[in-house]
Amino acid sequence: MKATLDYILHLADNALILGQRNAEWCGHGPVLEQDIAISNISLDLIGQARSFYQYAAELKGSGTTEDDLAYLRDERQFLNILLVEQPKGDWAFTTLRQFLFSSYQQLLFQKLTTHADERLAAIAEKTLKEVNYHVRWSSEWVIRLGDGTEESRSRILNAIASIWTFTGEMFMSESFETASGIVVTELETSWREKIKTSFAEANIDAPDNTFMRSGGKKGIHSEHLGFILAEMQYLQRSYPGCEW
């Protein structure tokens, strides 16, 4: 029970934190059309997070709400991977992270659609359409930047160099995953294949043998998560139950 709850919170936290990160682009996108595109993705992710939090709140019972789970948990209780909490960086970093994460979500949710937990399967099925679009949109950006100008290429290469250390955690099994019948290690090969295909189009290489950082799934985060939570939770913490 605890494991199931933790697993759903993990899925929810990943979506919420990346949604919050991407929302930082709202009003700051490189062009109006892409500003709206990344804001749409941000809202999609927050929508995903809500579906998972609502389910988690029901499992937890005793009057817990989705808002309690999003706004009243502390840093150490968040189970998202480190990848999603990293600062948004430049456009290359943001689109590359989206591509790496959405490709992972795509494989994971394809598996979840046949999960024994019907609620989880239904959320995965509904969400998969959005995720497919996120993969398409972000992969095109990675290819465009990698195969673009000298500057765009150097930006995507820098982004790969700084992000790669956070990719391994997606495929490190945590006890709440194995207890929920999810074997993330199985996804790694297909994920690498998918990444390599797009990278080849952009004429870039996927790094091998990088040291992989982890801890997020255990609640041990990088210094960035606290700042996101401070900003996101401030209102509910200062004015409990506030609505507008």
Binding site: L32, Q34, I36
Partner: peptide
């Protein structure tokens, strides 16, 4: 054209 269609979808 591809990006125009996607931008149109989003906007």
């Amino acid at each position: 054209a591809q990006m125009a269609i996607e931008n149109a979808r989003d906007v």
